[in-house]
């Protein structure tokens, strides 16, 4: 995160990737699938929200561990801001997914195992902020929330990647329909999807870096 704050090239890379995502995501020919029709293009906007969320939460837990090892306040600020932006990504993912589900599966919420598990993991991360907000002492807050962060991340992995795959799910990649296999035939989708994942993730890190700069400046002001 310290490195991200000092270097700028990746922000231009992010802009380029997201411009490409929107232009190519809307214009490049896509496989003609029943029911999905053009909504297959939502793949470049809905799914990267979840990928971005997982990368942001991963960076957040790394900084939480860093805080526990060093006691450096910077790591704590990075950790909480990364988790906060990650939670926003999750909310965007769930809202965009609900709209997509309305037209692809028929209902906003069909109690699909992955939908439910995603909602539960968002609630677990929401509790992280409740916990942070409820502790007055700064050191206590940082330490307890760092430990809870590790717990939340390790709970999210089985919720999103293991449990939904053990039952039938409407999501591709679960219950015997392998991930991305319907898209495998079409490499043009991948050519947009992978840059989209990188672009949206970088946007998340960009916003998180601004947010942590603000909170670090606030800390400096309070200490001074």
């Amino acid at each position: 995160m310290d490195y991200l704050l000092k270097k700028d090239w990746w922000k231009w890379f992010c802009i380029a990737l997201l411009t490409y995502t929107i232009v190519a995501g809307l214009l490049v020919p896509v496989p003609r699938l029943n029911i999905l029709n053009e909504t297959i293009r939502v793949l470049h906007f809905h799914v990267p929200m979840w990928f971005g969320m997982i990368f942001l939460f991963m960076a957040s837990v790394i900084h939480a561990v860093k805080y526990l090892r060093s006691g450096n306040n910077n790591s704590d600020a990075f950790s909480s801001e990364l988790a906060s932006i990650g939670l926003y990504f999750g909310v965007f993912g769930i809202l965009s997914g609900m709209l997509w589900a309305r037209f692809a599966w028929g209902e906003f919420w069909s109690n699909d195992p992955k939908q439910n598990a995603a909602a539960i993991s968002l609630l677990i991360y929401l509790a992280y902020f409740v916990l942070r907000g409820s502790l007055q002492d700064q050191q206590q807050r940082s330490r307890i929330s760092a430990v809870y962060n590790i717990f939340a991340f390790s709970l999210m992995i089985p919720l999103l990647f293991i449990l939904p795959r053990m039952t039938d799910s409407l999501h591709p990649g679960n219950g015997g329909n392998p991930a991305l296999s319907i898209y495998d035939t079409n490499s043009t989708l991948k050519a947009v999807f992978y840059p989209a994942v990188i672009g949206w993730t970088l946007l998340g890190f960009w916003i998180a870096s601004i947010a942590s700069r603000i909170s670090l400046t606030k800390q400096k002001l309070e200490d001074a």
Binding site: L36, E38, T39, F45, L99, W100
Partner: peptide, 10 residues
Amino acid sequence: GKIYVVIAVI
């Protein structure tokens, strides 16, 4: 072809 769903998601 439900292109408006894509636009709404964006």
